[in-house]
Simulated scan of single mutants.
Amino acid sequence: MFKRFKLDVRLIKEIDKTLLISLILLILYGILNVYLCTKAQYGLFFVKSQVIWFALSMLALYIFMAVDYTTIFNYVPIFYWGSVILLLLAMVPGIGVVVNGARGWIRVGGFGFQPAEIAKLGIILMIAKRLDEMEGKINEVKNFFILVFYAAVPVLIIVRQPDMGMSMVCFFIVLGIFYTMGLDIRIIGGGLMSLVLAIIIVWNSGFIQLYQKERFTGFLNPEVDSANTYQLKQSLIGIGSGGILGSRPSFSIDGSSSYSAQNVPEPQTDFIFAAIADQYGFLGAIVLLTLYGFLIYKMISIARTSKDIFGSVICVGIVSYFLFAIFQNIGMTIGLMPITGITLPLISCGGSSLLTTVISVGLVINVGMRRKKIFF
């Protein structure tokens, strides 16, 4: 049984070392900043949790690198429909719990996870599988609607929770895949118009509460004195406090914390970029973006050289996720994007997000390891 998960030396040589190192450095950078912005109030509580999830993620990374991704191809429907079932269970009172206004979490004992994180990966895998079976013929009407169906099923459930942030993530993942695979630009334009229409319908449907709407639109007028713009205002002050080299009070002898750690609500999750820019300044933000740059560049390179459509689409979907999540998360901390619950990949505190993101990158590394035929 364990031989199945043993990596041959010749496969190990094919691992993209830059991609792997960038992945691990980003996680460690995130753990450090989670500690720095929570230690004064919570001690080691959050960092212990993140370290445990990091260990689990490294185990999952190894497994998803060891098993040939073409073997996973046959099990994609089980993974996809399993994630849909979990999404539905999260909607059931008594099983699902409400977090930040959305019933999208399942808690078992002291363990909690967000099924939408799993569904996000399920969408990528299912669309990749179907496109491979279709030989990439995305512009055939039947094929297009089949792909839309598989994208829409989990997204509609996520919208109903309601979790607009994750809905946006899933939409832009699918958009990135469709665009890269050569979908007619007119169809993409129609899809964007449909998105606008869907947002208007959901916005006025009663699914979204007033405070959620104000939180979403607060970036348009941050000067308004409102509880929903408070977090953004504090984030901007914290980022400004960092300057070029950062304030770095967390490293001082008296154990004081940065402005963001003390004043930005939940700086370890959605607004961790503010804590990083405060602590390390512009330089720290550049280091973060450089690591992301290496990660994304390498994933794009693997997507281009994949031996099949299945592997290529997996890479494209995951790259699309990173690009949108990074842009959205950092954008909302500086007032350029609406405030949503989208976390900063590999950096923000959150177990299910870290685990699924590491698995996603592990799949990309897997695709890159098996670009060449290796004779055993």
Rank of each mutant, 00 (worst) to 15 (best):
M164A: 08
I177K: 02
Y179G: 00
L156Y: 11
V148I: 15
I187C: 00
V169Y: 04
T180E: 00
G165R: 09
C170H: 09
A152N: 06
V159C: 11
V169T: 09
P154L: 14
I177Y: 01
I146K: 08
M168S: 06
V155M: 13
Q161A: 13
F149A: 14
V159T: 12
R160P: 04
C170L: 13
M181N: 02
A152V: 15
P162H: 08
I187T: 10
L147C: 12
I187D: 00
R186L: 12
V159E: 14
Q161S: 09
F172R: 06
Y179H: 05
V174Y: 01
D184E: 12
V155I: 15
V174C: 05
F172L: 03
I185H: 10
F172M: 10
M166A: 15
L183F: 01
S167H: 05
I187L: 08
F144R: 09
R160I: 11
A151K: 02
F145K: 10
L175Y: 00
M181Q: 04
N143Y: 05
R160A: 15
G176K: 00
A152T: 12
Q161T: 10
F171C: 07
T180N: 02
R186T: 10
N143G: 07
V153M: 13
F178V: 03
V159M: 15
M164C: 07
A152K: 04
R186H: 10
L147R: 04
L156T: 15
V159L: 15
V169F: 09
I187A: 01
C170W: 01
M166H: 03
G176P: 01
L183K: 02
F178S: 03
Q161P: 01
V159H: 04
R186I: 15
F171G: 07
I158V: 15
R186M: 11
Y179I: 06
F172D: 08
L175D: 00
D163G: 06
D163T: 08
I157V: 15
F144V: 09
D163C: 09
R186C: 03
V153S: 07
